[in-house]
Simulated scan of single mutants.
Amino acid sequence: MTKTMRHSTTQIALHWTVSVLVVGQYLFNEPIAQAWNAAADGLPVSFNPLILAHVAGGVLILALVAWRLVLKSQRAAPPPPDNEPALLRMAAQVAHWSLYGLLAAMSMSGMAAWLGGVEAAATAHGVLKVPLIALIALHLLAVIFHHLILKNPILKRMV
């Protein structure tokens, strides 16, 4: 593996594609939540393209995260900035792996719930939304901190 100063074009595209898909999953989740509740109450669930989009989006997120992890194993991430404290380096590693794990867990629990009717998976899917939002917010705040306070090129690596 070679060290570079920025992520590859494919890694950048995957990052932003997953970001947009995740935002869409949160913005347009109401139809699938209503359908789940209706099905749980024994009511019929009619076709809604937003439900299909939510399910397909979750499957696509899982596939793209897997692709991103394969690329990560083949191409090293850029080295941390020189002015990044060791504690922040460790926190970044934990946060990134946690994001990957939560994205995968959200996708898999959603599929198990919707496609398999697994109630525990639906519960987990609902619970995992909160830490995922928290990690995304932390990620955004870290980028702002690096850019404005530490004045290092973290942001430039992903645009």
Rank of each mutant, 00 (worst) to 15 (best):
R6L: 11
H7M: 12
I12S: 04
W16S: 00
T17D: 12
V20S: 11
L21I: 06
Q25H: 01
L27C: 03
F28D: 14
E30C: 13
P31L: 04
A33G: 15
A33D: 14
Q34K: 15
N37C: 11
A40R: 13
G42Q: 06
P44I: 14
V45Q: 10
V45F: 02
V45P: 14
S46M: 06
V55S: 05
G57D: 07
I61P: 04
L62E: 08
A66E: 01
R68A: 09
L71I: 08
K72M: 07
S73W: 07
P79R: 07
P80T: 04
P81C: 01
D82E: 14
D82Y: 03
M90C: 01
V94H: 06
V94G: 00
A95C: 01
H96F: 10
H96Q: 02
S98L: 09
Y100T: 00
G101I: 01
L103C: 00
A105R: 05
S109Q: 01
G110C: 03
M111Q: 13
M111Y: 11
G117C: 09
A122K: 10
A124N: 12
V127A: 13
L128Q: 08
L128W: 04
P131C: 02
P131T: 05
L132S: 12
L135R: 09
L135S: 10
I136G: 10
A137G: 14
L138R: 10
L138M: 13
H139C: 00
L140V: 14
L141K: 01
V143R: 08
V143M: 11
H146I: 00
H147R: 07
